[in-house]
Design a binder for these strands. Sequence first.
RNA 1: GCCCUCGUAGUUCAAUGGAUAGAACCGGAGACUUCUAAUCUCUUAAUGGGGGUUCGAUUCCUCCCGAGGGCGCCA
Length: 552
Amino acid sequence: MLEKIANLLSEAVKEDEVKVFIPENPDFGHYSTNLAFEFAKMREISPDEAGKEIRNKLTHAAPKGFFSRVDIAGGFLNFTLSDETLEKEINLILRQKQNYGRTRKGHKKTVVVDYSAPNIAKPMNVGHLRSTIIGQAIVNLLRFEGYRVIGDNHLGDWGTQFGGLLAAFKKWGSREELKRDPIDYLVKLYIRFNKEAETNEELMNEARMETAKLQKGDRENRRLWKEFVRASLKEFNKTYRRLGVRFSVVLGESFYQKMLPAVVKDALEKGVAKKDDGAIKIALGDEKMPDIVIEKTDGSHLYATTDLAAIVYRVRKWHPEKILYVVANEQALHFSQIFKAAEILKIAPQTELEHVKFGMLLGESGQKMSTRRGEFIKLEELLDRAKEEAGKIDQKSAEQVGIGAVKYFDLSHDRRSDIVFDWNKVLNLKGNSAPYILYTYARLRSVLRKAGPKIKKRLDLSLLRTEAEKKTVRQLVYFPDMVAAAAENYMPNYLADYLYKLANDLNAFYETSPVISVEKNLAESRLALVAAGSVVLKQGLKLLGIETLEQM
RNA sequence: GCCCUCGUAGUUCAAUGGAUAGAACCGGAGACUUCUAAUCUCUUAAUGGGGGUUCGAUUCCUCCCGAGGGCGCCA
């Protein structure tokens, strides 16, 4: 709708960039534009005059009866949609159901979303939560906008820590224990390794040797490493299943190892990389960014090299329009370096690379959570506690409500800012939370069930005149706009915020407007509103990765 | 030292350069013989400070103060 009005305006005044927004105050209509300010300045006339001129032009361009009124206030033009338009829109919701708001903006365009990326042999902690939850929401949103989306879990399955792990496992390891609780066991082994290595030089050397053997393809090490990966993945998948997260592909860092020498060779041939102190570096020619090492003196490669290889691979394989990296703020410098290098190397000329960054989770003290201080909470533990908390109110829906609450807590924040991790806040089941919206939905569904087939869903807007009803209608129509804004800016919190407001309006409507016990025509109109509300809540939550419940 | 983020009610968070800065939690007062009270209705309270750009600044620029993060031949 927002786009439609912008197009109408832009057609009317022959101007490309027209900004239309949703005014917060409903007295200012459904949509507003500040176009008259700009016009006034350009033509040196008063905003009022400019407004009138635009309004005249618009009435020719707009379909008859589309707006019920266009007001001029200062330099603002305020558009109020006619009942006819609103009615059409609500009926569209009822007809299209979960497809209401779906667009084809991304038709024939591909986006790769790199998200989650846990490390093998380490438990997923709340730090991984954000990437996983935000990443999945972005994947859902972009698909809804018609993009072909490749969700890629860039596993941390390669690196020097495997040397220590291999050495430790060969010395003290037991297959049975690995089977029983793989990640927990591997962590214990790794801790023991680090502790003993402090006093035992020999152990460190062994680890280095094991790493080298693994990288050269030693059969035994390769087999063990694969076992670690498989066991860890099995546990991760349990968590992903709980969270409703699904990847298109899971290509870890190890996947790109074979490509690394080629990346280095290419960079050397293009004259972008140079040998320096025995290592190979890419000079970025930017004061704000240190150069990046892509090959160490000993010939081995690094994180940065892998990332460059991943770009090459993704571009060749999917020809994406964009690659999004849903990774924490802390890695901002790393990604600017990589993107700059990609630019100089010309390995992704048609692809936009973007770091979709997110803030840290801080401990309750407001400080960074750290493993050292024992503040890093395991993801599974968090989910279990959320479930337990929700179970205090209702056992049957505990898992879904609890997990929904955790997801919503994350997604309702601006992803870029740090969040203070407070159990009470995360597990809050009241107010601005998933359970609040889920509860609203369940009540609406209950009304629909109780009404049964006796009452038809037939909308007559002239009957819906209370404040609560009008607010709800207004809010419903905004759904496609909010989804589009959330998708285009990779900001799921726009949608979360919207759903909360909608639920708020629906609850007020629910309190004040009985459906079943009223006169037939009114009942039918209200039931239509209930149905439309439930459709939008369900689909909106689904895009955030939260499943609704019919009863709770 | 250099670079990047961020300072909004008591607390935790919102606000694509727009109109009277919104919520939630906490505190206080009310509402269930009527479609589910995990609900609803009232109520107190905020843009760190100084300049600037603009018709208009929480938002952009600049300085100051304060907080966090990053600057590895780690990932």
